[in-house]
Amino acid sequence: MTHSADAYYVPHSSYLPIIASIALTVSVVGAACWFNGTASGPMTFYIGLAMVLAMLFGWFNTVVKENLCGLYNAQVDRSFRQGMMWFIFSEVMFFAAFFGALFYARVLSVPWLLGDATGLATHLFLWQDYNEYWPTNGPANAGGDFQTIGAWGIPALNTTLLLASGITLTLSHHALKAADNARTVWWLIATVALGSVFLGFQAYEYIHAYQDLNLTLASGVYGSTFFMLTGFHGFHVALGTAMLIVITIRAARRHFTPDNHFAFEGVAWYWHFVDVVWLGLFIFVYVL
């Protein structure tokens, strides 16, 4: 390969994307069969998932290698950065759909069911006995009576954990820029630890909700929005933690230099995004 350091690197043909497409397809076909109660569903899903993981491993491995070979110039680096930024933006919009659902239910549909504001006759003819605003599982008491999780217990603690993890990550970044590898790695490990503890608490909270509070996905619109938002966020924290672990290992192997560490920054943006989403969640799902 004759790549001058200055050239925009255009990779050769690659099997990775087609493998990625097949892997994703296998996993969603598996999931779909699973939903339909087909016996082979779960198996197919896990095989697909394993393929996705293997593919991701292969893909990132390739990218890391190319990077270490010095194939990426500053312009390629910018492409990655901008790509990551807009990807995060699209994720924000994904969350926006679920936040939108929460606001719509709280501000519009539940009051309408109660006959508020618009003077609609809904409550007079359809749901005479319904009178709870929020939290609510709807006029049919979907999923049965439930209790909610207070904001100032675990959720507040989790907020602190995530905020702290944002700080440790920034400290790590500063250390990286100062070429202090030991500190970089240590602060990263601290970040991973904080993220993991967050996840642990989250899992505990879910178990508590299901077992003691009868708060489930089926608890009407409150349960639906609660678990959809927190669950989707938790999933992102899990992804973020996995990504952090990867860059911790890479940092330990001294892959990053003070002026070339896009992977680190990409993960850091992602982590801060997850952090900010949590703040929104904490306020709108738990506090208000």
Binding site: A97, V221, S224
Partner: peptide
């Protein structure tokens, strides 16, 4: 949300559960 309404018992789009 359609998927979870069908398979996971959520009520985003069902008035009985407070959705719409």
């Amino acid at each position: 949300m359609l998927l979870t309404d069908k398979f996971a018992g959520t009520s985003f789009f069902s008035a009985a559960g407070g959705g719409d």
